[in-house]
Structure formats: C-alpha cells, structure tokens
C-alpha cells in the first residue's frame, strides 16, 4: 500500500537473510517493518514499551525463520503480519494459537521468479483495492485485524467485498493444485 512496497524487493532481502545471514538486508527490513509492527500492536491495545519489545521479538523471528518464508505464497508484509498477530495473541491475549499443518512441501530454495512477481503484483492490487474502499468500511476492516471486533461484529459490520480478494484466492488455489498434481 505504501510507495516503497513496490520500490523495494522485500522478498529478495529475506532470501539474503536466509542464505547469507545478511545483516544489511535485515537492517533494511527492520527499518521498514519494525515501526509497522509496533504501530499494529499499539492499535491492538499494547502500550509503547510492550509494543516495542514485541516488535523486536517479531523481527527476531523473521531473522530466525527466514527459511520458512515462501515468496510464492505470501508477501513479506503478510508473513510479518502473521508473526505479529501470533505474538499479540501470545503476549496480549495470553492464549495459544493452533496453526494449520504445514504443506508437505516447503519453500523452494530458488523460488520461481515469475510466481514471486505475480504474488507481488497481486499484493499491490489488494493494497490498492483496500485503499479505495469507503473510509468507514476500511476502518472496520482495520479494527477487525487489530483484534478489536468479535466474530459476530465481523459478521455484522465489515462486509469485505469478495471481489477484493478473489484473484488472490484463485492464485493460491492454482498454486496448491499445481503442487498436488
């Protein structure tokens, strides 16, 4: 959604962290994502100090688990979001989060560049589609992701237009079926 999203190849930086423990690449990722994670956690109800610590933990996880990131299945922002969300559930809600079973195949050492590009373009489309939603609806979706709405409130209030994510679902399903066959 922000401008640098399209200007910087975040996925390539994560690959450099994975393959070379590249600290310069990590530093660039930290400068971009740590403040976003902190902002996300503060909007989810964390105070400044806790959000700061948790943002550091989330970035530490990125450093440690770079080999689990699959740029053909998610953008870096999405992957960081899932780590931040789980940290929030753990630290703020004091609850556990069961995760789906991993796919039987892991991320490719050399991901298909066309697939990575397709995923990045779809991410930009999604960001643009969200930005164009009416302000009120967008604010509700944001609140849902800050963990501010209950399930019934999500059901009643957000009404995320399915068109916004349709291409993303189709893309993900094609990839899964391709791997299965």
């Amino acid at each position: 959604m922000s401008q640098d999203q399209s200007e910087t190849d975040w996925a390539a930086l994560v690959m450099r962290v994975r393959d070379h423990q590249d600290k310069a690449a990590f530093a660039a990722l930290f400068r971009h994502f740590a403040p976003r994670v902190k902002g996300f956690l503060m909007k989810s109800g964390a105070g400044d100090t806790l959000a700061e610590e948790c943002a550091q933990d989330v970035m530490a996880t990125l450093w440690q688990k770079a080999h689990l990131f699959d740029p053909t299945r998610a953008s870096v922002a999405t992957w960081v979001f899932t780590i931040a969300r789980n940290r929030r559930i753990d630290a703020l809600r004091k609850s556990r989060r069961p995760e789906p079973e991993d796919l039987p195949w892991g991320p490719e050492p050399e991901p298909d560049q066309a697939e990575v590009l397709e995923m990045q373009q779809d991410t930009e489309r999604l960001g643009a589609a969200l930005a164009q939603l009416p302000q009120k609806q967008r604010a509700l979706i944001e609140r849902a992701y800050y963990g501010d709405l209950s399930h019934s409130e999500i059901a009643e209030e957000t009404g995320l237009p399915l068109g916004t994510i349709k291409s993303r679902i189709r893309l993900a399903l094609e990839r899964l079926r391709h791997h299965m066959s």
């Binding site: 996300f40 922002a77 999405t78 960001g127």
Partner: peptide, 11 residues
C-alpha cells in the same frame, strides 16, 4: 492473511 499484511503495511 494478505489483507492483514496490507493493514499492517499501511501505518
């Protein structure tokens, strides 16, 4: 989850 990524990246 990608929607979550877009929300996180925005601010």
């Amino acid at each position: 989850e990608a929607v979550g990524g877009a929300v996180l990246d925005d601010d």
